[in-house]
Design a binder for these strands. Sequence first.
DNA 1: AAGGTAATTTACCACTGGGTAAGTTCAATT
DNA 2: AATTGAACTTACCCAGTGGTAAATTACCTT
Lengths: 212, 212
Amino acid sequence: MTTLSSKAGTKGVPRADREQQILAAATEEFGRHGYEATTVAAIAARVGVTKPLLHQYFGSKEGLYLACLDPIGDRLLDAIRTAMAGHDAAAPPTPLRVLDALFTALDGQRRAWFVLYDPTLPPGSDAAQRAAHYRDAIDGLAATGTAELLHTAGTTDPLDADALKHAWRGLCTALVRWWIDHPDQSPEAMTRRCTRLIEAAHTIFAPGDDTT
Amino acid sequence: MTTLSSKAGTKGVPRADREQQILAAATEEFGRHGYEATTVAAIAARVGVTKPLLHQYFGSKEGLYLACLDPIGDRLLDAIRTAMAGHDAAAPPTPLRVLDALFTALDGQRRAWFVLYDPTLPPGSDAAQRAAHYRDAIDGLAATGTAELLHTAGTTDPLDADALKHAWRGLCTALVRWWIDHPDQSPEAMTRRCTRLIEAAHTIFAPGDDTT
DNA sequence: AAGGTAATTTACCACTGGGTAAGTTCAATT
DNA sequence: AATTGAACTTACCCAGTGGTAAATTACCTT
């Protein structure tokens, strides 16, 4: 017996490396199909490894998700925070700086955005709570931004501010999705495109430009 | 024997009525959790009925989804089409008319929007194709709108138009989602809110308003 | 060489969820 | 009252998926 031609045994990949590979694959799968529709086996297959290894390394499907979520959440949060903090007078307006920060932070793992904004997380689960925590943190930043902007525009309704916050989030999501469908676009190109679009939108909604 | 206290047998609800109840429940569930995460049993329970009845009436989970999709798709498509067609000179700008049409068409079944824009449909399935067909039809309308608007703004890049189309779709989605979270808001109130927000956004991105 | 340990697989269990077969109750017709 | 057909359920099968136990291989030390 012996030598049943079993493929078991180490493949010489140290644990830390393997974990990174798994996290990358999991982020891709979670981001592409959502938590619910993602199978552990699919992630394993993507790495070229079998299911039990993932369970040994990350405990459970949810553990694996959380391991993906944390770095993503931190990275995005940091990026947005710094984008909103440092504002020269001569810098582009805040929304554009935030978009630029997003594109830069997501480059190389664009689908990571949808790991954070995954609607299929089991409600009440640890994963859902952690994801919500990160989203709330980001929303908090967005809230100060939108509130400030609305204030300068003279609007005071707090519901308006909340709706605008959500609208902004939806805009970001849509832009990231479009970006995913156009892999050749660099982050910088995206930022420039957004600049153009905002400018265009501005012209469109400004019929009172020639207020004689 | 007999009378094992079985709850089987007709409940006096004619098929057509029951089908409508089921479709309403299914639309709600599909819209709330997405196709993948929705279970047929959950829909049945919501109606107060058991699984096999749904299969008898609609064939399969996918059949049930398609039966939900068609009326929704047609309704939305019609609403948007008429909103884009009839434009007085004195009417509000097209995007706002479209939003108003959306809110009116979705009132009473707001989650229906997410039946159409369900990212968890099994790729390649009949359901995914039909949903894509409706989305494309709507996108087609949006495309003519955005292209026209971009043209007046002087932008010519077709990718810009495509991106704006997606951004607009994302905006609509976000607004509908916010609306779902605020059930007390009437469609008209939503339209007014959007009018205010667009106006505010316009002021914000117009630093060159006071070009003395 | 022998032994230990890390990396990895094979083989399995339990549960859930879509789907089906067959039976059960009710109401209208004959 | 007996017959038929529509509405509906109980009980079941089967595939897929998360998860686990135990075995297998390879490297590193002594």
